[in-house]
């Protein structure tokens, strides 16, 4: 599903975010990517959705070599990958409903199929009663769930969540995890970048630990760190 071979990324300002990353993630897996801030977690996500290009190595997503992708093909790649961004990236002037519907509109989904599908995912994230609210009228946890609803509305093969529990109270964080597991059980590959050791240690999944641009560990049912 996702394969990174010898991937390195140095940004134009000289920062070397990733050095030698080798990762293979299979279909329907649930993977934590852990590591301290600045370890390179977000860079990996940006590479997968082709927001940035690697300076070295190759990346395959869904069988496609991202290096061969033309500019016109990028939108089609992104439609197959749902991303819950760390800062949510919701449209501030659009309602909850419009925010989620947007992801369907870009695929030119017929209008009569947009509404039922949006309501379906709003039901999944339990926000059916807030369709008309603007993002700023929602709590952090609610905005997080809107972002998640938008990420899955296109039934993507891969769901990537960047710190989806960051800045949330434990209860909300666990409910978000429940939703992610739910989505994973329906057949979606889930990649979650996090530094929430509590969740990683309690909800055991594969753990890929990144530090200083390298893969430190890659363990099936791993822990956040050896000390934990």
């Amino acid at each position: 599903m996702i394969e990174m071979k010898k991937v390195g990324k140095t940004y134009p300002n000289g920062v070397q975010a990733l050095k030698d990353i080798n990762i293979h993630i299979d279909k329907e897996e649930f993977v934590y990517v852990v590591g301290p801030s600045g370890a390179g977690k977000t860079s990996i996500i940006k590479l997968i959705i082709r927001e940035v290009v690697p300076t070295e190595g190759t990346i395959h997503v869904n069988g496609t070599n991202l290096g061969d992708l033309t500019k016109k093909q990028i939108p089609y790649l992104r439609r197959k990958i749902g991303v819950v961004f760390q800062d949510f990236k919701l449209f501030p002037k659009l309602s909850v409903f419009e925010n989620i519907a947007f992801a369907l509109e870009v695929t030119e989904e017929p209008p009569d199929r947009i509404k039922p599908r949006v309501m379906e995912v709003l039901d999944l994230v339990k926000l059916k009663n807030k369709t008309r609210h603007k993002p700023r009228e929602l709590s952090g946890g609610e905005q997080q769930r809107v972002a998640m609803a938008r990420a899955v509305v296109n039934r993507p093969a891969i769901l990537i969540a960047d710190e989806p529990t960051g800045n949330l109270d434990p209860e909300t964080a666990w409910s978000i995890m429940g939703t992610l597991e739910d989505i994973n059980h329906r057949g979606t590959t889930v990649v979650m970048a996090t530094h929430n050791s509590h969740i990683v240690n309690h909800l055991k999944k594969r753990v890929i630990a990144i530090d200083d641009g390298n893969v430190l560990r890659d363990e099936w049912r791993g822990a956040y760190s050896y000390e934990a």
Binding site: I49, E51, K72, P75, Y76, L77, R78, R79, V83, F85, K89, L90, F91, P92, K93, F102, A103, V106, T107, R150, N154
Partner: peptide
Amino acid sequence: EIEIMKLVGAKNSF
């Protein structure tokens, strides 16, 4: 907003 549109998979023409 334009950046978000692109990241969600919108084509330039869209």
